[in-house]
Simulated assay, not measured.
Amino acid sequence: MKTFTLTELNNKSGEVAEAAFRGPVDITSRGKRKFVLMTAEDFDRLRELGAQRAYRTDRLSGEERKLFLAGLDEVAARDGGDD
């Protein structure tokens, strides 16, 4: 998964958006992961799967985090993204 800082998001918005077309993008602030940017299509797909709530990844258990990342990898593989 690509990672950009909030400053890079402001200064390189086109590059960040292009990366988000290939798969979810981490946005960090002061070295900590704060946001995930993804296409509306990926977001809608997550909602269709029953993801009705947003969770902070730093509050997930190790097993939950592993399942979440595996799901993101599945979406990226299915859509041809490989970042």
Score class of each variant (00 low, 15 high):
1 M>H: 13
1 M>P: 14
2 K>P: 15
3 T>E: 08
3 T>K: 12
5 T>C: 07
5 T>I: 11
5 T>D: 08
6 L>Y: 11
6 L>F: 06
9 L>F: 15
11 N>R: 12
11 N>K: 13
12 K>C: 15
14 G>C: 08
14 G>M: 09
14 G>H: 13
15 E>C: 15
16 V>Y: 11
17 A>I: 15
19 A>C: 14
19 A>T: 07
19 A>V: 12
20 A>S: 15
22 R>T: 06
22 R>I: 06
24 P>N: 14
25 V>D: 14
25 V>H: 04
25 V>P: 07
25 V>S: 12
26 D>I: 05
26 D>A: 04
28 T>Y: 01
30 R>V: 08
32 K>M: 12
32 K>N: 14
32 K>R: 09
32 K>L: 02
33 R>D: 10
34 K>H: 08
34 K>A: 13
34 K>G: 06
35 F>C: 00
36 V>N: 04
37 L>S: 12
38 M>S: 03
40 A>Y: 14
41 E>M: 11
41 E>K: 06
41 E>D: 10
41 E>A: 14
43 F>N: 08
43 F>P: 00
44 D>Y: 08
45 R>N: 13
46 L>D: 06
47 R>C: 03
48 E>I: 09
48 E>T: 09
49 L>V: 01
49 L>T: 04
50 G>V: 10
51 A>E: 10
52 Q>I: 04
52 Q>F: 08
52 Q>M: 07
53 R>L: 05
54 A>W: 11
54 A>T: 08
54 A>V: 09
54 A>R: 03
55 Y>I: 01
55 Y>E: 00
55 Y>L: 00
55 Y>F: 12
56 R>Y: 09
59 R>V: 08
59 R>W: 01
59 R>Y: 07
60 L>A: 02
60 L>G: 00
62 G>D: 05
62 G>M: 03
62 G>E: 00
62 G>F: 04
63 E>R: 00
64 E>C: 02
64 E>R: 01
65 R>N: 02
67 L>P: 02
69 L>M: 12
69 L>D: 10
69 L>A: 08
69 L>C: 04
69 L>H: 05
71 G>P: 10
71 G>A: 12
73 D>W: 02
74 E>C: 02
74 E>Y: 10
75 V>D: 09
75 V>C: 05
76 A>N: 11
76 A>E: 14
77 A>C: 01
77 A>T: 09
78 R>M: 12
79 D>S: 07
80 G>Y: 00
82 D>Q: 07
82 D>W: 04
83 D>H: 13
